[in-house]
Amino acid sequence: MTEYKLVVVGAGGVGKSALTIQLIQNHFVDEYDPTIEDSYRKQVVIDGETCLLDILDTAGQEEYSAMRDQYMRTGEGFLCVFAINNTKSFEDIHHYREQIKRVKDSEDVPMVLVGNKCDLPSRTVDTKQAQDLARSYGIPFIETSAKTRQGVDDAFYTLVREIRKHKEKMSKDGKKKKKKSKTKCVIM
């Protein structure tokens, strides 16, 4: 069974824990209790493949930012979460993405942009803004509501699919490099 290491990042209060708990335990946590770091595991079937999701729910508070490099190193894919009623959390996505790329030393890291709290009427981040940002990053965008469960499975499952595509691409690139290195030079 394939294991996928997913990391949920975003500013404090955007609903990272609520999304994760909704996926794992099928219930909505409405009281806000700032996370330092929590880890969850769940076995699911995605596109006919049974897999184990190892999900790291991270601290959004700035005082825990020193811990970010460590979990970013171990993560295979990242859910970059903002709240649709919090423009600052949307603007912060850029910083999370840049930090992930720096730590992973790669421009090509599996990510999904997630606009959470889409059940709320007080939207300050337009869907088109988020779609445009995701398009500019070359990553999928999904709106979710941890409260109603809308888009929750889709967000995590899409990230797994992005990781699969990335692994497939990397193995193809690896095979191309191996083929090239088999060419021999004969000096007579």
Score class of each variant (00 low, 15 high):
residue 17 S to Y: 01
residue 34 P to Q: 03
residue 178 K to T: 14
residue 15 G to K: 03
residue 52 L to D: 15
residue 36 I to M: 04
residue 82 F to A: 14
residue 68 R to S: 03
residue 154 D to Y: 05
residue 167 K to T: 12
residue 174 G to N: 07
residue 95 H to L: 06
residue 158 T to M: 14
residue 75 G to H: 06
residue 94 H to P: 02
residue 163 I to A: 04
residue 170 M to W: 15
residue 164 R to C: 12
residue 71 Y to I: 00
residue 102 R to T: 10
residue 185 C to D: 15
residue 14 V to A: 11
residue 179 K to E: 12
residue 32 Y to A: 03
residue 175 K to I: 14
residue 41 R to A: 11
residue 11 A to G: 10
residue 105 D to E: 08
residue 30 D to M: 10
residue 89 S to W: 10
residue 169 K to G: 10
residue 66 A to Y: 00
residue 82 F to E: 06
residue 109 V to F: 09
residue 104 K to D: 03
residue 144 T to S: 09
residue 53 L to A: 09
residue 67 M to W: 00
residue 138 G to E: 12
residue 94 H to F: 15
residue 90 F to D: 05
residue 116 N to H: 14
residue 83 A to N: 15
residue 109 V to D: 02
residue 186 V to S: 12
residue 161 R to T: 14
residue 40 Y to M: 01
residue 83 A to R: 07
residue 43 Q to L: 08
residue 95 H to R: 12
residue 119 D to C: 06
residue 8 V to F: 03
residue 52 L to Q: 14
residue 61 Q to G: 06
residue 45 V to A: 13
residue 180 K to W: 10
residue 173 D to Y: 08
residue 10 G to E: 04
residue 116 N to E: 15
residue 25 Q to E: 15
residue 187 I to V: 11
residue 186 V to N: 07
residue 79 L to S: 01
residue 34 P to T: 05
residue 67 M to P: 02
residue 69 D to F: 02
residue 43 Q to D: 13
residue 94 H to G: 14
residue 25 Q to Y: 02
residue 13 G to I: 07
residue 60 G to S: 01
residue 38 D to G: 00
residue 73 R to S: 06
residue 35 T to P: 00
residue 70 Q to L: 01
residue 4 Y to K: 15
residue 67 M to H: 00
residue 163 I to C: 13
residue 58 T to A: 03
residue 136 S to E: 13
residue 134 A to L: 12
residue 24 I to G: 05
residue 25 Q to L: 11
residue 2 T to V: 08
residue 78 F to A: 00
residue 155 A to I: 07
residue 138 G to R: 13
residue 14 V to R: 14
residue 124 T to W: 07
residue 142 I to V: 10
residue 27 H to T: 14
residue 32 Y to W: 09
residue 165 K to P: 03
residue 165 K to A: 12
residue 82 F to S: 13
residue 50 T to G: 08
residue 93 I to F: 11
residue 40 Y to S: 00
residue 90 F to Y: 11
residue 9 V to D: 02
residue 177 K to R: 08
residue 7 V to S: 09
residue 11 A to L: 14
residue 63 E to W: 02
residue 99 Q to C: 04
residue 184 K to N: 09
residue 188 M to D: 14
residue 121 P to T: 11
residue 188 M to F: 06
residue 32 Y to N: 02
residue 38 D to H: 01
residue 174 G to F: 02
residue 57 D to M: 00
residue 21 I to Q: 14
residue 159 L to C: 05
residue 164 R to P: 13
residue 69 D to L: 01
residue 87 T to I: 12
residue 27 H to C: 13
residue 66 A to I: 03
residue 22 Q to E: 09
residue 138 G to H: 05
residue 167 K to C: 07
residue 96 Y to F: 14
residue 93 I to D: 02
residue 103 V to D: 03
residue 47 D to M: 09
residue 173 D to V: 04
residue 160 V to A: 07
residue 46 I to N: 13
residue 65 S to T: 05
residue 24 I to F: 08
residue 171 S to G: 13
residue 63 E to F: 03
residue 63 E to L: 03
residue 21 I to T: 15
residue 49 E to G: 08
residue 5 K to N: 14
residue 62 E to Y: 03
residue 52 L to E: 14
residue 17 S to P: 02
residue 59 A to H: 00
residue 24 I to W: 02
residue 170 M to N: 15
residue 184 K to A: 05
residue 2 T to I: 08
residue 113 L to I: 07
residue 74 T to V: 11
residue 162 E to Y: 11
residue 80 C to D: 04
residue 150 Q to T: 12
residue 108 D to V: 08
residue 163 I to V: 05
residue 152 V to S: 12
residue 156 F to A: 03
residue 71 Y to D: 01
residue 63 E to I: 03
residue 97 R to S: 07
residue 115 G to D: 07
residue 65 S to V: 05
residue 101 K to E: 12
residue 120 L to T: 10
residue 70 Q to K: 03
residue 2 T to G: 11
residue 125 V to G: 11
residue 160 V to G: 08
residue 27 H to V: 09
residue 128 K to N: 06
residue 18 A to H: 04
residue 71 Y to P: 01
residue 130 A to P: 08
residue 149 R to S: 08
residue 80 C to A: 05
residue 47 D to R: 10
residue 8 V to P: 02
residue 34 P to G: 02
residue 68 R to P: 01
residue 100 I to D: 01
residue 83 A to L: 05
residue 155 A to N: 03
residue 60 G to V: 00
residue 64 Y to S: 00
residue 71 Y to W: 02
residue 6 L to W: 05
residue 109 V to H: 02
residue 84 I to F: 12
residue 133 L to N: 14
residue 55 I to M: 05
residue 113 L to F: 11
residue 7 V to G: 02
residue 12 G to T: 09
residue 99 Q to P: 02
residue 102 R to A: 14
residue 26 N to I: 03
residue 20 T to R: 00
residue 183 T to V: 04
residue 122 S to D: 12
residue 40 Y to L: 01
residue 59 A to S: 05
residue 61 Q to C: 09
residue 71 Y to R: 00
residue 152 V to C: 08
residue 106 S to F: 08
residue 159 L to R: 02
residue 10 G to N: 07
residue 98 E to G: 04
residue 111 M to A: 03
residue 10 G to H: 02
residue 121 P to W: 06
residue 46 I to P: 13
residue 83 A to I: 02
residue 32 Y to T: 02
residue 56 L to C: 04
residue 112 V to G: 01
residue 78 F to M: 03
residue 102 R to M: 11
residue 187 I to L: 10
residue 3 E to T: 06
residue 105 D to Y: 06
residue 42 K to M: 12
residue 91 E to R: 14
residue 135 R to G: 10
residue 8 V to C: 09
residue 159 L to G: 04
residue 49 E to S: 12
residue 10 G to P: 01
residue 137 Y to K: 09
residue 130 A to L: 12
residue 169 K to P: 15
residue 139 I to P: 07
residue 82 F to L: 11
residue 127 T to R: 04
residue 55 I to A: 06
residue 53 L to F: 11
residue 49 E to D: 10
residue 145 S to Y: 08
residue 111 M to I: 09
residue 59 A to M: 00
residue 111 M to S: 02
residue 43 Q to N: 13
residue 153 D to R: 05
residue 116 N to Q: 14
residue 38 D to R: 00
residue 53 L to G: 12
residue 49 E to P: 11
residue 37 E to R: 00
residue 25 Q to A: 11
residue 54 D to H: 03
residue 119 D to T: 15
residue 12 G to R: 03
residue 73 R to V: 05
residue 75 G to R: 02
residue 123 R to F: 08
residue 35 T to R: 00
residue 92 D to K: 04
residue 30 D to P: 07
residue 61 Q to F: 02
residue 3 E to K: 11
residue 101 K to I: 09
residue 41 R to V: 10
residue 173 D to K: 13
residue 120 L to S: 11
residue 61 Q to S: 12
residue 4 Y to T: 07
residue 167 K to M: 10
residue 167 K to F: 07
residue 24 I to N: 09
residue 129 Q to M: 07
residue 90 F to L: 14
residue 178 K to S: 09
residue 66 A to H: 01
residue 56 L to W: 02
residue 142 I to H: 12
residue 103 V to L: 06
residue 178 K to W: 05
residue 168 E to H: 12
residue 161 R to G: 13
residue 121 P to F: 09
residue 81 V to C: 10
residue 77 G to M: 11
residue 158 T to K: 09
residue 77 G to W: 03
residue 37 E to G: 00
residue 183 T to K: 12
residue 34 P to S: 03
residue 70 Q to N: 11
residue 5 K to M: 08
residue 24 I to C: 05
residue 76 E to Q: 07
residue 128 K to T: 05
residue 57 D to S: 01
residue 91 E to A: 14
residue 166 H to F: 06
residue 33 D to H: 01
residue 117 K to I: 15
residue 130 A to G: 06
residue 180 K to Q: 09
residue 101 K to T: 13
residue 114 V to H: 02
residue 113 L to S: 03
residue 7 V to H: 06
residue 119 D to E: 07
residue 13 G to F: 13
residue 178 K to C: 10
residue 68 R to I: 01
residue 117 K to C: 10
residue 47 D to S: 10
residue 15 G to Q: 11
residue 92 D to W: 14
residue 95 H to P: 15
residue 124 T to Y: 08
residue 188 M to G: 14
residue 72 M to V: 01
residue 98 E to H: 04
residue 81 V to I: 08
residue 41 R to L: 11
residue 155 A to R: 02
residue 93 I to A: 14
residue 134 A to H: 06
residue 16 K to Y: 02
residue 82 F to M: 08
residue 50 T to K: 12
residue 16 K to D: 01
residue 135 R to D: 14
residue 41 R to N: 13
residue 98 E to L: 02
residue 119 D to R: 12
residue 150 Q to F: 07
residue 140 P to S: 10
residue 17 S to V: 01
residue 73 R to L: 06
residue 139 I to C: 09
residue 60 G to F: 00
residue 157 Y to P: 09
residue 159 L to V: 06
residue 160 V to N: 08
residue 55 I to K: 00
residue 78 F to T: 01
residue 175 K to L: 08
residue 63 E to V: 03
residue 30 D to V: 08
residue 100 I to E: 01
residue 122 S to L: 08
residue 137 Y to I: 09
residue 79 L to I: 08
residue 123 R to I: 10
residue 133 L to R: 10
residue 22 Q to S: 08
residue 135 R to P: 05
residue 36 I to A: 06
residue 2 T to N: 15
residue 57 D to P: 00
residue 169 K to Q: 11
residue 74 T to I: 08
residue 111 M to C: 05
residue 44 V to W: 08
residue 85 N to S: 06
residue 130 A to N: 10
residue 181 S to W: 07
residue 117 K to H: 14
residue 25 Q to G: 14
residue 126 D to E: 07
residue 80 C to Y: 06
residue 30 D to C: 09
residue 89 S to P: 03
residue 24 I to S: 04
residue 173 D to Q: 04
residue 85 N to D: 07
residue 165 K to H: 07
residue 7 V to A: 09
residue 4 Y to M: 15
residue 153 D to S: 07
